[in-house]
Computed example of a mutant assay.
Amino acid sequence: MKKSLIALAVLGASGFAMAQSSVTLYGVADAGIGRSHNYATGVNTTGMKANDTVNNGNSRLGVRGVEDLGGGLKAGFNFEAGLNLKTGANDAAFWQRNANMYLAGSWGQFLMGRTLDPSFFGAATWELTGMANYSVVANTFGFGGDGTPRNNSQFTYTSPNFGGFSGSLGYIFKDDNGGNAKWDLNLKYANGPLGVALTANKTQTMKTGWSLGGQYKFGTFVVAASYNDLQTVRRGFSIGGTANFGPGSVTLDLTRDTKNPVKKYTNALIEGKYSLSKRTFVYADYLRLDGENNYGIGVRHNF
């Protein structure tokens, strides 16, 4: 269960009141069993799966906090570490998933540090699985046409929401990115049954990656489609849908290359989920990706 921990009400030595501050501990536990293909080594493995392609997501432990500064201004932070339920090991860098702080107000939010990029949040507006590890769109074309969904040293401005319209712009200076500056943006509309997003990202000396996608909900069904360009290395479209049946759902999502320097593939994902509670669900997935079969069953618990 998600637990909010009230931060220190008084800093003993200074006496400053902190009654408007709070800190929240949260996390995800996700593990299962399955078979996956390692596309770097060409090796297939079967067994327990954690932080794998066939898992819904990676396990993690995070802490976030916010302070009300008055006048509608807030300051906050988010630190998040990944961990592997197979071994208990953490990521190479402890706060590898998120390490950032921000100021926010009626004018929007300004964030500094390691974080997911605007292209990821844009694609999440319409992607059917909630950007799961086994997302066929993300595995085929990257996250909004970007192969690296997290950036170091990123400055990000996110606008307020204007009746469903919002946007984000991220920038990394060249000295913080191996000598090549990078920008990343999204423009989104999410209101009622419709969600649409355009993303674009470019690292200096590289081509621009982009995506345009949308989803529409009607009754218990959701349909989605997109076009994605992974920095002109690989591009193509996706189309799919989700049918919801009470606590359960079934998703079918397909991608097709229109450009691929190796071979044009049609990839597919079938996902089934069943909620055991508001925070826990079981899932099964089959991902046909670039001629290889990946499949698994697992349990995810959010706290």
Rank of each mutant, 00 (worst) to 15 (best):
A50R: 05
A92T: 14
Q20H: 07
R64S: 04
D91S: 15
Y286V: 08
V299R: 00
N139K: 01
Y227W: 14
G47T: 07
A81T: 06
P261Q: 04
N186Q: 01
N152R: 04
S277Q: 08
F120Y: 15
D257K: 08
R64G: 10
G32L: 09
P193M: 03
L269C: 12
G82K: 01
R150I: 13
V262E: 03
F281E: 11
W107I: 02
S153I: 01
Y265T: 07
G241T: 00
L187G: 09
Y134A: 07
M1K: 10
M1C: 10
T205S: 11
S14L: 03
L73Q: 11
L83C: 00
G108L: 02
G27T: 03
N58D: 14
L185V: 05
M131G: 01
D184M: 06
I270S: 08
I172M: 11
L194E: 03
M18N: 13
S211T: 14
T115R: 14
A17V: 12
E127H: 04
P160L: 07
G72Q: 05
A132S: 15
G246F: 01
G167H: 06
A225S: 13
D30N: 14
G192H: 09
R279M: 11
L69I: 10
V63S: 00
V223Y: 08
T41I: 02
G209L: 06
A13S: 15
V222Q: 12
S211V: 02
L276P: 09
S36W: 07
R279E: 06
S135C: 15
K217E: 08
K278P: 04
K188A: 12
D30G: 05
S159D: 05
L198E: 09
G88R: 02
G167D: 06
